[in-house]
Design a binder for these strands. Structure first.
Lengths: 245, 245
DNA sequence: AAAATAATGTGTTTATTTTACACATTAAAA
DNA sequence: TTTTAATGTGTAAAATAAACACATTATTTT
């Protein structure tokens, strides 16, 4: 029985023998798929592309590509993000790997799903030139391949993750009001929260910096603007055992 | 720019073209590595094998193997488990995928880590015949390849997961005392808990079946034995939004 | 200019959950 | 029979989460 890392049989394999196995057989196409979330008009959005495969014509799919042999997984995801949104240095995290044998019509392709959160105002993607489109997450249905499953998994992952880690700020402008923040949480979690308790909770965490500015051009009493204090968070989170964001 | 799922350029690719890419280039060896946890003598253990690669001689590594081209990822992990422990139908869950370009000395190998929890009494592995060994998790240091990182990630994953899902019961015999259960949680989380509050918490969840039996052959007053009510859990968990186990 | 509107900003009370803590009971061992 | 070492149970205090109402401010309308 072949074994990659070790063996329980007495004549163990040489590195060369393993190299032959690694290089010679059982090689599989590996891709990354990016679930790129954005937040616009108080709706959570996901960036999709129209699939160009006939079988999946008129279906939407996630943005993905094959991983090159000399490319790290996260680098591949970053490359796709840069290519499609023009953005680098964005929030990017691995969610799950999908490897069912027949998941892709072009053959065996195992794909690693990455979740990315971007500020939709920052990016300059040429939506008019191509077949990219920001979908409301509620409209992200009937996707191509197994991308529905990948998307659903990623969205659930996001819903859970945002309650424990401060990643949501990546979806907002640097300066935001507490109403913006609450709208974001309500959009992601899909339920309404009490405004007073929401504010209380975030103030008690003490990671918001009051920048002493007010909203501009709003058709009502302007709210104060805040920034998220990443430095403080980085220091504090190390001391926590169970993060309860 | 090649694209697996879709394209923003006008002349989109045919399925054939993509098939060629998938089959012809960029293929990568894919493995699974199993982090197999057990619980014995009130210690959390992990099953490791002595690495047979010279560079990593005397280092321990996780149990892993290449994924066959026609094999699902989870099936590959199940195969390794069956092969090494004789067990099937065990708790098995994907944790993370590790794909740094130079992580393995035999060439580019991307590996998907799976976490498995088994009842250490049930298995019949031939530890004497081979180089398998149950390590105390605190002694799982200095592993081969990037297996330290994989193990650390998996152990942290387990610590978090066990606080939200009832997977720990896979590590115990079918019938267990509350003391067993608490010992398990304390071993995994690495801190002591209040016995009364621990019991109260589990009773209030109402997933333990009192089977009206007592411990046997213990050198003190025997405690009651319980089973975990998987059926009830399966029904209830679907109604929960945020599981707080 | 005044009134109406629609949002922001704030505190208290209640309920729930978590934590801290002590003693009687039981079976085995001495 | 006594000692020992565990099981089994309840209550009070503290912390957290949930429910809830009104004054304030800037804009818009009249």
């Amino acid at each position: 029985m072949p074994s990659l890392n070790g063996s329980h049989i007495k004549n163990t394999k040489s590195l060369q023998a393993i190299q032959l196995e690694v290089q010679g057989r059982n090689r599989i196409a590996l891709s990354v798929d990016c679930v790129i979330f954005g937040f616009d008009e108080n709706k959570l959005k996901v960036l999709l592309i129209r699939s160009d495969l006939k079988k999946y014509q008129s279906k939407w799919s996630l943005l993905g590509d094959l991983v090159a042999e000399n490319e790290d997984l996260e680098a591949a995801a970053g490359r796709i993000l840069k290519q499609r949104t023009g953005l680098s240095d964005v929030y990017l995290e691995q969610v799950h790997t999908f490897g069912t044998v027949n998941r892709h019509p072009a053959g065996r392709v195992v794909t690693v799903a990455y979740c990315s959160l971007i500020n939709i105002q920052h990016h300059k993607l040429n939506i008019l030139d191509n077949e990219l489109h920001w979908h409301d997450v509620k409209a992200a249905i009937n996707l191509a391949f197994d991308h529905q499953q990948i998307f659903d998994t990623s969205y659930q992952w996001l819903q859970k993750r945002i309650q424990e880690h401060p990643l949501g700020f990546s979806l907002l402008p640097k300066k935001f009001s507490l109403r913006d923040l609450q709208n974001l949480y309500e959009a992601i979690l899909d339920f309404k929260m009490d405004r007073r308790n929401f504010r209380k909770k975030f103030f008690s965490m003490d990671f918001l910096i009051d920048i002493d500015e007010m909203e501009q051009d709003v058709p009502h009493r302007p709210g104060k603007l805040y920034k998220f204090n990443y430095e403080k968070y980085e220091v504090k989170k190390k001391k926590w055992v169970g993060i309860d964001f």
